[in-house]
Amino acid sequence: MLLSKGFEVEMYTGSPQGDIIGLSDRIVRDLEGFVREPDARNVEYTTAPYCGYDRLLCALVNPRQHLRQYLRSQGDYTLIPGSTLSLGGADQFYRSDPNNPYHSYIEQTYHTDVVTASIHINVGINDPEILMRACRLVRVEAPLYLALSASSPFLDGQVTGYHSTRWAVFPQTPPFVPLFADHDHFIQWTAQQLDQGTMQNVRHLWCSVRPNGDRRPYNLNRLELRICDLVTDPISLLAITALLEARLLQLLANPQLDPLKQSKLTPDELVSLTLANEQAVAKQSLDASLQHWQDGQTLLARDWIEQLRQEVTFIAKPRGLSCFISPIQRILREGNTAQQWLTQYEAGQSPQQILSQAIQSTEQMERDLEDKLCHSQAA
């Protein structure tokens, strides 16, 4: 039995040359299924939760194809890969809803550090105590998913020195989020943050992983992994998701995988170790040197991911997940998007040339996927 899964996909709009242009007011006005972000240069769509990966693939691709058709009707516009304002524009915030007081707070407090694009992966878990256990495990391993997805080595036309500039600059809020011991701990902690003003509302919890649901913090039904950069290749995204699901299925089968039971570190020490791992991965992604939460062992992110991939094989294979996980090996071998872009940069290409090529190849890949796999659903 597979878990239900869905995605929140944030993307930039702009020109085929890679310049990011705010169009979310038009998109939200004219197309169903898209919502605005505080800055007009982002637009977001959410897929319905599905258990099967074939339906997930089409749920990812079809809305994007509809959006591309709409953008072409508005002018020479397209969707832009990457998770930061790669070629410029980080000096100014472009409000999508000038009358929204929460957007005003975000602009004044964080400026363009929050104007990023990403993928949030939601996995359905209805029992709140099992969900808290799952959040604890995925939290300490979240850096691995960032390492696989990093796609933001540029900002304002410059190489930043990070593979995920997005995660390096994104304001994690509140600054220190504990490993929640149980559901009551999460409820009480959330109430305290709202009372102290460190969170403006229940959505204002911006960390790598959080429990989510229809009435937070009380009614919860899913784990939300928020750390991933934008993954424009749906096959790679499904691989990352399948690895996450297999790990969660492993936890469901063996509750002892809980970091509070399997680590000698205190809960606060585990959070500090994880935050350090996140920053190491933001800088070097798959080549980052990390500390394992179980024993403090130092190892490269790519080696830890390969260990994890092998470890979940016994859970993944009988559930038909192995074929979806297999592209992880390609990412480890060929590099994530950020590493591939930096290789092109070192070979003499400019960030604009790299973005322009990525736009063309992404469009072609989506067309091919829709034609081969999703045509019947699109029709």
Rank of each mutant, 00 (worst) to 15 (best):
C207L: 08
G75E: 15
Q74K: 15
Y102M: 15
R309I: 01
L79E: 02
L257N: 11
K372G: 01
E10R: 05
E8I: 05
Q352C: 03
P327N: 05
G197Y: 12
P38W: 06
T362H: 08
Q329W: 04
D229W: 04
G88W: 12
Q352I: 01
Y50Q: 13
D184H: 07
Y105G: 01
L257K: 10
Y145W: 11
Q310F: 03
A59G: 13
S236R: 15
Q284E: 13
A358L: 01
C323M: 11
P327W: 05
T198I: 12
G320A: 10
A90K: 04
T165H: 14
G89M: 09
V115Y: 00
H375L: 14
P318T: 06
L67N: 10
G348I: 02
N221C: 05
F34L: 01
C58Q: 13
E107T: 01
E32P: 13
L85I: 06
T109I: 00
N62F: 06
M132A: 02
P318Q: 10
D268A: 05
E269D: 15
L85F: 04
R319T: 04
Q344T: 02
L146K: 02
V140S: 05
A134K: 01
R203L: 13
I119E: 15
K261T: 02
P143C: 07
H204V: 13
Q352M: 01
M199A: 15
E8Q: 11
D287R: 13
L71V: 07
S208N: 11
P351V: 03
G89I: 01
D368K: 11
C51L: 03
P101A: 09
G213N: 10
P327G: 05
K5D: 05
S272D: 15
T232Y: 06
Q364M: 12
Q307S: 14
Q340I: 02
I331L: 10
S263W: 10
N99F: 00
L243I: 02
S326Q: 11
D30N: 12
H163W: 09
T337H: 14
G197Q: 14
A276P: 00
Y105T: 03
N126P: 08
E370D: 15
N336I: 09
Y162C: 04
L67Q: 09
D258M: 07
E44H: 01
F180P: 10
E32N: 11
L273R: 15
T109N: 09
L220R: 08
I20N: 04
L31H: 08
F180D: 13
F186K: 05
T78R: 00
S104F: 10
Q291R: 15
L244Q: 10
Q172G: 07
I235D: 12
R226L: 06
D268K: 06
Q297V: 07
F186W: 07
S73K: 12
R222Q: 14
K317P: 08
S236K: 14
I20D: 02
Y70S: 01
L243E: 02
T116C: 12
P63A: 09
I130Q: 14
Q307F: 01
L308T: 13
A117H: 04
Q192P: 08
P128W: 09
L56I: 05
S236D: 14
L290A: 07
N277W: 12
R215Y: 09
L56G: 05
D182W: 00
L290F: 08
T160Y: 10
V115W: 04
Q360Y: 04
R330E: 12
T298H: 11
T241S: 15
F176L: 14
E129I: 04
Y50N: 06
L137M: 13
R367A: 08
S263F: 06
L31I: 01
